[in-house]
């Protein structure tokens, strides 16, 4: 709700909803990322679920709080770091005498354990990290554009 004197007050129902659903979104998203190789899910899906926390923050507290709680530069660097980790894990196959992205050590743990599938597990985590930082950064960019529009209108009028 926006008043004429420029003070913005968030709806208390939306704020409480964001408060209550944010931990669940984070826990569920990280669960989907971590258990991507032993259950339905994976890096991409879990990363997008975690990145939806940015939307919840924006809905509950506005862009100022969301932008100050999350440093977009760190997110931007984290995405590149995730891509580099993925490529290194893929090159591990070539370095150990197989093809690119081949699973070279997968005898670590019984079938169904958390770390049981060798490089597949770590590549899934790398992709999850990459997607959650990348999509979070994208959402912050777009929400920044959304938050900048009313000011321009106010300046124009």
């Amino acid at each position: 709700m926006k008043f004429k004197n420029g003070i913005t007050e968030r709806n208390v129902i939306v704020k409480c909803g964001a408060d209550h659903y944010l931990p669940f979104a984070l826990v569920f998203g990280f669960y989907v990322i971590l258990f991507g190789t032993v259950s339905p899910g994976g890096g991409f899906q879990g990363g997008v679920i975690v990145a939806s926390a940015v939307l919840l923050l924006y809905l509950g507290y506005g862009f100022q709080t969301a932008g100050s709680a999350l440093r977009s530069e760190v997110l931007r660097v984290g995405e590149s770091a995730g891509a580099v980790i993925y490529v290194i894990l893929g090159l591990l196959g070539i370095l150990l005498g197989a093809r690119f992205c081949q699973n070279v050590f997968f005898d670590n743990g019984a079938v169904g354990d958390l770390v049981s599938a060798g490089t597949v597990t770590f590549m899934s985590w790398a992709v999850g990290f990459k997607v959650l930082t990348g999509v979070g950064f994208l959402l912050l960019l777009l929400l920044g554009l959304l938050a900048a529009d009313p000011d321009e209108e106010a300046e124009g009028s």
Partner: peptide, 12 residues
């Protein structure tokens, strides 16, 4: 691959 999830092993 040792992965219990076939889709994950195919994708990664």
């Amino acid at each position: 691959t040792g992965a219990a999830n076939n889709v994950a092993s195919v994708v990664f």
